[in-house]
Every structure is written in structure tokens, then in C-alpha cells.
Design a protein around this nucleic acid. Structure first.
Lengths: 205, 205
DNA sequence: GAATAAAACGAACGATCGTTCGAAACAAGT
DNA sequence: ACTTGTTTCGAACGATCGTTCGTTTTATTC
């Protein structure tokens, strides 16, 4: 219901965002489907029915959770490098920013979108659509940064923005998974070296 | 309700491996946690209790499912290239074999281990341990193939087996995710080009 | 402070979850 | 045909799931 999405009082919007703060953390560990309304209600100190009313359905809660996670991601990874000069500096900044975000525990269970995008990649529906859109945005941002680095003459013309964006995204998700699965922060060092190896071969002399 | 007998068309004796065949497919779509005994029983034509007796617990079923998926993976990806000559040919063969496996629909919901390793990477327990071991094996195989390619003089000495194995694994999982999420098989072409770009820069002249 | 609107509640719903148990159905050996 | 052991079964358990409903508590407005 749209009445649940438009806050009508101060208190309502506060609790809503407080709920989502916890929802994002729980979902990063147990998945968006494993996120249960009962557990979330207990974790936030609300009643099941009271919490439920904010979102109208579990799907509504999931969609709102994706939205909230997106805001966290943008604040942690993208915003800090908006000011960097176009081209290679901003691209390198983006990658470094992500490498700092990885082990930062922004999400309790590791990168929310790495988890959600794998969990829903084979289940049609609005949640998958929203996750896909978020991934497209992030991938598009990487692609754009590469394209600008080429336009600025920082990277050679052979640098393919689509290919490089795919590689960077895959390496980032791979580092997140290795870190989570093996409890080994060196995964991010591997990712950093992979980024560097790929870029160094393409920088203009 | 009248007790008139429905003609029991009992399917042929369902073996444990027949159950697991279906379990692997269901889990690749809905996850190992989303795999439910009731749904699996219905999909195989068995009763919930009858199926349950084979595994003793849901965790037992999950562990057996991981095992069965591992056998499918080995048969689809690893076995076909065992005969190739050591070094670069076998490494390239492994990567090509994986690229063929990706869109092969061996698993209904895409690569089982890409999904399971992300689903369980933050949830301690025997299932995570088993998945981690499987991923270590696959990653170790890639590492070994790179090391042999260096030893045979096919790749330059700077080629770092751990780093390259990490990259190949990440790119493979990334291609699987992109394929599943965007329904676009070109993801595997991107992965192929990424593999080639990385290897071509390291082959000995 | 009364009137009104929003938010949170407790209780219950039917469905499904994993699991247990004792009885049938079945296979094989003697 | 009788016994033994293995599968499979139906029925039920308590727990939890998402969801609904009517009521009570809280906040905002006049």
C-alpha cells in the first residue's frame, strides 16, 4: 500500500527507518527471503503486527530493505569519491573506496548486494527486478568511470568499458565472498592486486 | 471425506540418488535453506516422512545435496579436461570447460556452488564448512593448473598462482551471476575475454 | 482538553516448516 | 509359509511463517 510508503507523522518515519536499519543487517546474513517478520519484530522491540503495518507485505518489506541498503552503499562507496577528478583518479578512487567498504562491516553479513543479487538471480518478481536495477546502476557507474578515463586520455583506447566494468564487479564480489567464506581479509589484497594488474596494463605512458 | 481408494500409482523405487538429483536442482534455484522437505517430497512423489528417513535431518539432506552437486560439477567441468597435457593447455581447458558448463543448465538455477557459497558464507555450521571445502578444492585446482603452467614454462614467472586462481574464480562466479540476473549469455563472452586478456599478458613468447 | 488521525498492539487465522512415531508394505532368506 | 530387516507410509506434534482484524495507545490538530 502506498499509505505505508508515505510517512504521515514524524514518529512513523523514524521507526520505519529504524526497522530498515535492522532489516538490512539481518538480511545481509540470512538473505532477503530468510528475513522473517517475527525475528525482525523481536530485534526491533515491536510487535509483529505493528511492524507489518509499515510495509503491507513481506515483499514490501524486502523492497524497502533493498532501498535502504542502496542508500548505505551509496553513502559508503560512491559519495566519498564524487569530488575526485574525472578519469583515472575517480576510477581508482571508486575501486579503493569499495576495497575499504568490503571489510568495513557496513553490512553484518558482508556486501548486501553481492548476497541479494545471487539469492534472487533466478527468482522472477519485483524484488529481483529491483536488485537487478541496483546492480545495473553500480555496474553502469564503473563503466562510465572507465569511459571517462579513456576520454581523458588516462587509459588506452583498447580499454573496453563494458569488459572492465564486468571484471571489476566480478572481482569485488569475489573478494567479498572469499572474505566471508574463509574469514580472510587478504581477499581484498588479492582484489587490489587484480585491479592494479588490469589497470597498469592499460594506462597511457 | 469418503475413504474410496485412489489407485496408488507408485512410481518405481526411488533411490536416494534420485531424490538428490531433484534436491540439487531445487536448491540451485531456491537455495539450500529454501529447499524444503515437503516440496522435495512432492517433487519426487514420496511422502515427507519417507524422504526424511533417508537423511535424518534437514542438515543431513543439505550436506548430501552439496555432495551430489559436487559430483555433477566434477563430471561437467573437471573430468573432461583431465586428459589434457599439463600446463597452459590444461589451464585453458579448465576455463573453457567452465565457460561451457555455465550456460549448460547443469543446474536449473545456475551454478550450484556460486549460489551456495554466497548463501552460507556468513552462517557457521557443517554446511558452510562443506561448501567451503568444495570451493577450496576448486580454487586449489585452478591454482595448481597455473603453477604447472609456470613450471612448464608456458607462463612467465611473475604469474602468481594464488592471485590468478582468485581472479578466475571471481570472474567465473561473476559471469554466472550476470547471466542469471540479466538473462544474458554474453556474460560468458565477457568472462572469456577477461580470461584471455589476463593470460595473454603472461604467456611466454 | 476534546476531537481526530496515525501507529502499535494482542490474538487469532490457515499454511507450512522440520521432526517423531508406530504401523503398514515390501524384500530377502530360511 | 514364517521370520527378519529395510523402506515407506499416514497422522500428528509444536513451532514459526505471513497475514488479518478490531482495539488500544499515542501523537497531532482544533
Amino acid at each position: 500500500m502506498d499509505t505505508a510508503e508515505i510517512p504521515k507523522s514524524r514518529k512513523g518515519s523514524l521507526t520505519r527507518s529504524a526497522i530498515l536499519e535492522e532489516a538490512v543487517q539481518l538480511a545481509s546474513v540470512h538473505g532477503l527471503e530468510g528475513l522473517s517478520i517475527g525475528q525482525l519484530a523481536e530485534a526491533t522491540g515491536l510487535s509483529k503486527a505493528g511492524l507489518f503495518a509499515h510495509f503491507g507485505s513481506k515483499e514490501g518489506l524486502q523492497l524497502a530493505t533493498v532501498e535502504a541498503a542502496g542508500a548505505l552503499f551509496v553513502a559508503a562507496v560512491i559519495d566519498p569519491v564524487k569530488h575526485l577528478p574525472k578519469g583515472l583518479p575517480r576510477l581508482r578512487g571508486l575501486l579503493e573506496s569499495w576495497l575499504a567498504y568490503g571489510p568495513s562491516r557496513t553490512f553484518r553479513g558482508g556486501c548486501f548486494f553481492a548476497a541479494a543479487s545471487t539469492e534472487f538471480d533466478g527468482r522472477p518478481g519485483p524484488v529481483r527486478d529491483r536488485v537487478r536495477e541496483a546492480m545495473k546502476q553500480w555496474s553502469g557507474l564503473l563503466k562510465h568511470a572507465v569511459r571517462e578515463a579513456v576520454a581523458e586520455g588516462h587509459l588506452r583506447d583498447e580499454a573496453d568499458p563494458s569488459l572492465l566494468a564486468f571484471e571489476f564487479l566480478a572481482l569485488a564480489m569475489g573478494a567479498n565472498n572469499a572474505y566471508q567464506l574463509h574469514d580472510d581479509p587478504r581477499a581484498f589484497d588479492l582484489a587490489r592486486r587484480a585491479f592494479a594488474a588490469r589497470l597498469d596494463a592499460l594506462v597511457t605512458p
